[in-house]
């Protein structure tokens, strides 16, 4: 359908869709505490404030916009959210936006490299499996990636940490650094702490992509241009990795966009096991403390990440497939 649209119109309709999503998410954040069972005041402010003295409670209610009719509250809420005022974390004793800013970078530090490395791994493994299909290599790759696909990420994280951390002692038992280091030593230290979580996420991401690459390369192998590439005198590997994989990249990008939420959720979960100070750990602690504003902020910012990922995927797709330009 979008093929017949003017490019600008396509971008505009996409932008409208994204705006609607953001609007729905902010509205959900506003409505959920008020619709759910229990006193909305408690749902918004948390238990500690709720059981404090009545005067303080009234003050807090005014401060957090819980007084007045619902629609007034709603517009105030919408305005605050767009201004970047997402509430106050009881647990961290700082504005939610600040807390999220601190944690988001560590999550992105895991997710972004994992997506790129995982796609690379899947492209190579999927192409080889397609080329040597039905061979031991193909079956081995398929079985490995299918296992990684099936096992819960955080459980795999526990197993990895147990084997490589506790038993073998090759890698640290969690966190980002081991102590006060600066400069290059800091980077090396962080890299060392990153090996296990990043490795696990990379393989998990590759597990999502592997079958897609394998099947698209197999179907591309029936195309005339692959035959033509062979007839030109290209080597098998050149045909495979240049002509076939190049055309399997577009479906790979689509899958990455679809699976972005899953890989992000996986990251959140394994952060908890690795004590990685990202969004996952923040959410975990917020759940324990019923720190609602933080959970709402996390929901919002992760949704924004999803939208950005979708947007980037759309752009990359157009770049990869000249026919869509």
């Amino acid at each position: 359908m979008e093929r017949h649209q003017h490019p600008a119109a396509a971008v505009a309709s996409k932008a409208v869709r994204y705006l609607i999503v953001l609007f729905v998410i902010i509205s959900l954040n506003f409505l959920l505490p008020r619709l759910m069972p229990g006193d909305p005041v408690m749902n918004v402010l948390g238990e500690e404030a709720y059981y404090g003295s009545p005067e303080v409670l009234e003050e807090l209610k005014a401060e957090w916009g819980l007084d007045g009719p619902l629609y007034v509250q709603y517009f105030r809420y919408l305005g605050n959210y767009l201004k970047g005022d997402w509430g106050h974390s009881f647990l961290c004793m700082r504005p939610v936006s600040e807390a999220i800013g601190l944690h988001l970078r560590w999550t992105l530090a895991l997710v972004l490299p994992a997506i790129i490395l995982g796609a690379l791994l899947a492209a190579i493994a999927g192409a080889l499996a397609a080329w040597y299909r039905k061979s031991k290599l193909d079956i081995g790759f398929s079985a490995t990636f299918l296992s990684f696909y099936s096992m819960p990420h955080y459980w795999l994280a526990m197993v990895l940490l147990f084997v490589f951390g506790f038993l073998l002692g090759w890698f640290p038992l969690g966190k980002v650094t081991s102590g006060d280091t600066t400069g290059l030593a800091y980077v090396v230290d962080v890299g060392w702490h990153m090996v296990l979580p990043l490795g696990l996420l990379t393989v998990s991401k590759a597990a999502y992509d592997f079958l897609v690459v394998r099947n698209s390369v197999i179907s591309i192998y029936g195309e005339d241009y692959v035959l033509m590439a062979q007839a030109k005198g290209l080597s098998q590997m050149a045909v495979l990795f240049k002509h076939a994989v190049r055309n399997a990249l577009a479906p790979l990008v689509t899958v990455t966009a679809i699976q972005f939420g899953a890989i992000l959720s996986g990251t959140l979960m394994i952060e908890i096991v690795f004590s990685w100070p990202g969004m996952g750990t923040m959410i975990y602690e917020a759940i324990g403390a019923r720190d609602y504003p933080v959970l709402q902020g996390a929901f919002f910012i992760i949704a924004v990440c999803m939208l950005v990922a979708n947007f980037i995927a759309d752009m990359v797709y157009v770049w990869l497939d000249p026919r869509t330009r």
Partner: peptide, 18 residues
């Protein structure tokens, strides 16, 4: 390609679209 070269039948699919 260097000794025997091929001109394929279907020009619409024989060139890599990418």
């Amino acid at each position: 390609g260097r000794q025997i070269a091929l001109v394929p039948q279907d020009h619409s699919t024989a060139l890599n679209p990418a």
